[in-house]
Amino acid sequence: MVLGKVIGSVVATQKDESLVGKKLMLVKAIDLEGNLLEPFVVAVDVVGVGIGEKVLVVNGSSARMTDETRERSIDSVIVAKVDSINIS
């Protein structure tokens, strides 16, 4: 999974039918200190996150392993809102 930060949202009225009703968020990867890195994705939010929040993103076919994304054309999903990161 990728540790990321929600930096925005994406609105698309014309889209694949399987994406209708899905919340599209713009997520940038971050390092362990929270600094933004280059990679970003448009991920479907199945958890209910807001802009600025730290999240975990799953990519690839595993992204379809939730009730909200099964058998839909989705390859990136926000699966968790991060409370804390413990590194030692």
Binding site: M1, L3, L32, V46, V47, G48, V49, L56, M65, T66, D67, V77, V79, A80, K81, V82, D83, S84, I85, N86, I87, S88
Partner: peptide, 18 residues
């Protein structure tokens, strides 16, 4: 090197260590 705590998450992640 560490772990992550996330209480709000997809159903499939419930009870799993991160």
């Amino acid at each position: 090197i560490g772990n992550i705590v996330a209480t709000v998450k997809a159903k499939g992640l419930e009870g799993k260590k991160i």
